[in-house]
Amino acid sequence: MVNGARLEVRGVSHAFALEKRALPVLEDIDFTAEPGEFVALLGPSGCGKSTLLRLVAGLEPPTEGRLLVDGREITGTDPSRTIMFQDPTLFPWRTVRGNAQIGPEARGTLRADAGRIDDALSLVGLSAFAEALPHQLSGGMAQRASLARALVNQPRVLMLDEPLGKLDSLTRLAMQRELVALWEREGFTALLVTHDVEEALLLADRVLVLSDRPARIRADIRVEQQRPRRRDHPGLVARREEILGLLGLAEAT
């Protein structure tokens, strides 16, 4: 059942070349996500969280350090490590189904994976909208389609780059619940980037609190509460205060 991969990030630092000057964004990031673990990367906007996901996805190599999946070094992109971006980034010229099948199509496994595409669409509740075009979808539906597109590839590591950041608050609550249900069902290792403390605490097993740019790990906080979690649970409220304190945002009591 657990088909998540073990992800090791070892001493990773990364810098952007900006007009001949190096702009450091990540500094000595070091952690291990166990197979099937749900890890949230929490930090202020623009601190470099998304960059870390790009490195794990293999879209860019790190300036320093190593990234390993099940002990093997990440050298490039792989369908077993997919990202769900903040913007749905659906191809507007393709229907929902057309978008969901991009992975199998790119790898030439369209016929073998036909059933999986239908499964993924029904899993996110979009079966009835398979032939709809992206511009006909609401924000939440578009993000679900994007999720289906990632799930079709049966990821062992699913990276979620603030996937709910642009949704209205009601859709957001519903999708948080759906994400947890999916993760419990599929067993992938999840890496969620967010700047929403509550979202991190509701979803994740572990919250890595990152500093301002260049991002360093300020704290590694374990969230033990049983799921489904309630946002007003005293344990979570205490954790929330702790994290806000770490970010220098503690509420005066």
Binding site: D78, P79, T89, A106
Partner: peptide
């Protein structure tokens, strides 16, 4: 990026 992460040539 989307296509590359899913194995596009």
């Amino acid at each position: 990026d989307v296509a590359r992460t899913m194995g596009a040539t």
